[in-house]
């Protein structure tokens, strides 16, 4: 599967990554090479094989619906780039 620069621009947007116009060709080559490697998978017929999402045969554990964590908002927000009154600040979303 060969990707062109238009494909890369679309994927980069989906992944919310800014990719400069000048970098698109380089990523298109790299991603195409990786997808060529990946397409070796097509050599094997997997019709009817149950997909394996996870190595352990287990179901999700449930726990009682009770508060188990203490409020550490202030501690967590010390790592935030911008906060005010306990809120995370981002550029204006609604005009």
């Amino acid at each position: 599967m060969a990707l062109d620069t238009k494909d890369v621009a679309k994927i980069a947007h989906l992944a919310r990554l800014e990719v400069a116009e000048s970098e698109l060709a380089h990523y298109a080559t790299d991603l195409s090479n990786i997808l060529t490697l990946v397409e070796q998978m097509d050599a094997v017929d997997t019709t009817g094989v149950t997909p394996m999402a996870h190595p352990l045969h287990m179901s999700q554990r449930l726990r009682p619906d009770a508060v188990t964590e203490a409020d550490q908002r202030d501690a967590f927000q010390t790592n935030a780039p911008a906060t005010e009154n306990g809120l995370y600040l981002v550029p204006k979303v609604i005009e």
């Binding site: 994927i11 992944a15 990554l17 990523y27 991603l31 990786i34 997808l35």
Partner: peptide
């Protein structure tokens, strides 16, 4: 831009392969 500046090339490649 935060993600583009924060992540290196290989991480971006893998994010994009996975996204695709």
């Amino acid at each position: 831009r935060s993600r583009a500046e924060g992540f290196g090339d290989e991480v971006k490649r893998r994010i994009m392969v996975g996204t695709y």
